[in-house]
């Protein structure tokens, strides 16, 4: 464990908590893409199956349980409790175009052809594009509430910090996983446009307006 990875995990946790609090306090999931949240739940489910039979550390186990519980909790709030406030008209990204290629790629490019490894690889590929429905929805609605942009900033920062973690581990000549690194770079690049707008607009108190 290193400071970059710890900050990355905490940024990830912060993002999820910001989202849960936003939905819970405002009792509304307006502006939030249920499809992206659905993809994140798939990512965590496919990746954390080893939860039940490999123990890496207490931290690892606790965080996996928290991520699984909060992602399903978010789905519950969006699709059941506050379903009336879900903006399905603007949440229209075709997620089958993300899931199917991720499955195909995981079957073609992986470290080991075992069920667990293929599922892990699938979750890595899917996570790299899971935010697209949310970014698409923000561009369709043309704007995002500031709390939503804080959520996106924390979520985008998590994988950017993981890239610093991989650089740090490379200097320590620790074992690295090329699949996770390439996917993590793609994932972070998808946020660049948003990062620019967040840093130049939201932090100056302006509303986040994405060019439609």
């Amino acid at each position: 464990m290193n400071i970059f990875r710890l900050l990355g995990d905490l940024s990830h946790l912060l993002a999820i908590i910001i989202l849960l609090l936003k939905i819970w306090n405002s009792r509304s999931c307006a502006g939030i893409s249920g499809r992206s949240q659905f993809l994140f739940a798939i990512v965590f489910t496919a990746r954390y199956l080893d939860l039940f039979f490999t123990f890496i550390s207490l931290y690892n186990t606790v965080m996996k349980i928290v991520f699984l519980a909060t992602s399903y909790g978010t789905l519950y709030l969006m699709y059941i409790k506050f379903k009336a406030t879900y903006d399905s008209n603007h949440d229209t990204f075709r997620i089958e175009f993300l899931i199917l290629p991720a499955i195909a790629l995981a079957l073609l490019i992986n470290e080991e052809f075992t069920v667990i490894e293929i599922l892990w690889t699938f979750s890595i590929y899917l996570e790299s594009v899971a935010i697209l429905p949310q970014l698409f929805m923000v561009s369709k609605t043309g704007e995002a509430e500031s709390i939503t942009s804080h959520y996106l900033f924390a979520l985008g920062s998590y994988r950017a910090l993981y890239i610093l973690n991989w650089i740090y581990r490379w200097f320590l000549t620790e074992k690295l996983n090329a699949i996770a690194i390439v996917a993590g770079i793609v994932q972070t690049i998808l946020y660049c446009d948003f990062f620019y707008l967040y840093l130049t607009k939201v932090l100056k108190g302006k509303k986040l307006q994405l060019p439609a």
């Binding site: 990875r5 995990d9 490999t54 890496i56 690892n60 996996k64 470290e111 080991e112 892990w120 973690n165």
Partner: peptide
């Protein structure tokens, strides 16, 4: 035989 992939990262 690739080393058993132990994914220690979240």
């Amino acid at each position: 035989e690739p080393a058993e992939e132990d994914h220690d990262e979240l």
